[in-house]
Amino acid sequence: MTTIPRSETHLAVLVVLGLTHLLNDMMQSLIPASYPILKEVYALDFVQIGMITLTFQIAGAMLQPVIGIVTDRHPAPYSPVVGMMFTLSGLVSLAFAHGYGAILVSVALIGIGSSIFHPEATRTARYAAGGKQGLAQGIFQVGGQAGGALGPVFAALIVVPWGQPSLAWFAVTALLAMALLTWIGSKQRQLSAEFHAMRTQRNAARAPVPHAPVTIGVGLFVLTFLMFTKNTYGESFRSFYTFYLIERFGLSIPASQMMLFVFLLAAAVGVLIGGIVGDRIGRYRIIWISVLGPLPLTLILPYADLFWTGVLTIMINLIMASAFASILIYAMDLLPNRIGLIGGLFYGLNFGLGGIAAAFLGVLADSYGVEAVYQLCAFLPLAGLLTWFLPRLDEGAGT
């Protein structure tokens, strides 16, 4: 029996990469975490709040697939540093914005920064993974999820008491991320050489069978739709959870931000567990569990009291987030030579589809109340039934 070679897993690179993802997504998460303040200062309605999210998410979605295609052909290991420059400028601009239009421009700059960051960072995680793709994507994504969870905490501790201009203080985190990304960029040549040498040896030992176009098309459609439903449910919390807690249970802004932090922290734990378990039991099983499993909990949530609202939201996000690494790797296995495109496409979808959902949910919240948002979103996990149509892949053959 031929032994399939495995390259070394570069944990130091993955940890630092995860840290830069944490810093990137923490700065982004300050946007929705600041919504209660912006809503009060500028007398915004929920439709305008949804449009801020839509602007941010669309700006972060449009460029990502394009950048992924370009970097597949011409790898640009230092492009995430450029992306962080856009994020830095957008964050400072948001801190001193004095009108709704300036807010939209500021969040668009932050979205563009994210669109440049993710494709090449995803490629680096793939190269540094060795034979542990689930672990690698789990570490990378747990950084992003943890960063997203920290935004509400910093908003409660810093932005609420010190006001909108305090957002500029977080520019130092962008400078730190730029320094770390410069170090990671210097490692990519070595990581790329190891990865492609391992693939060459693996292909010589067992020639890969290309997937049929129909298989690729069906697989990407199902994965995209599952991502859309997951993002819609997640966006209902990122944009409107604090308003829901304030309106229904009378919580203060800081208290509601801390509950949002706990909800988002559960996602960080979920993606890491999902990545590790996916390496053991397979991506297909993890996706089934993650997308359909939360359904009973989401149906109960709109009718729960404050304590059980907290418990249920943690459980829902823990389960729901566990599939993201598996969805991403599944897509990479369908198109193994298009890592940048897949990274850009799925992180881009993560932004764009979430933004569209936020705009729609904002209209719904204005028309029928915030509670109606969660009554409708409770049925979204039913989309998990589409997992049945996912093509079954030989996961052991993938890199």
Rank of each mutant, 00 (worst) to 15 (best):
V70P: 01
V70S: 04
V70L: 13
T71F: 07
T71Q: 10
D72S: 11
D72H: 09
D72L: 06
R73S: 12
R73A: 12
R73Q: 12
R73N: 12
R73I: 08
R73L: 13
H74I: 14
H74M: 13
H74Y: 14
H74G: 06
H74R: 15
P75G: 06
P75E: 06
P75W: 04
P75M: 07
A76T: 12
A76Q: 13
A76Y: 08
A76N: 08
P77D: 06
P77M: 07
P77T: 05
P77N: 09
P77L: 06
Y78E: 10
Y78Q: 13
Y78L: 13
Y78D: 08
Y78A: 12
S79F: 12
S79L: 15
S79Y: 11
S79R: 09
S79H: 10
P80N: 08
P80W: 01
P80C: 11
P80R: 04
P80M: 08
V81H: 01
V81P: 01
V81L: 10
V82D: 02
V82R: 02
V82G: 14
V82I: 14
V82W: 09
V82S: 11
G83L: 05
G83A: 07
G83Q: 02
G83S: 09
G83C: 08
G83D: 06
G83R: 00
M84R: 00
M84K: 00
M85F: 14
M85W: 13
M85N: 08
F86A: 10
F86E: 02
F86R: 01
F86V: 07
F86W: 14
F86I: 07
F86Q: 02
T87S: 15
T87W: 02
T87P: 06
T87H: 09
L88G: 02
L88A: 11
L88K: 00
L88D: 00
L88C: 09
S89I: 14
S89D: 04
S89L: 15
S89P: 04
S89Y: 12
G90Q: 05
G90A: 07
G90D: 04
G90C: 06
G90F: 06
G90E: 05
G90R: 03
L91M: 14
L91A: 09
L91F: 05
V92Y: 12
V92M: 12
V92F: 10
V92R: 08
S93P: 05
S93E: 05
S93V: 06
S93T: 12
S93G: 10
S93M: 13
S93Y: 13
S93F: 14
L94V: 02
L94A: 13
L94T: 03
L94C: 05
L94Y: 03
A95Q: 03
A95R: 03
A95I: 04
F96S: 10
F96P: 03
F96G: 07
F96T: 10
F96C: 06
A97D: 09
A97K: 00
H98I: 07
H98G: 13
H98T: 12
H98K: 13
G99T: 01
G99L: 03
G99H: 02
G99I: 01
G99R: 03
G99V: 04
G99S: 15
G99W: 02
G99M: 01
Y100C: 00
Y100P: 00
Y100S: 00
G101E: 07
G101H: 07
G101F: 05
G101K: 00
G101T: 10
G101A: 13
G101M: 05
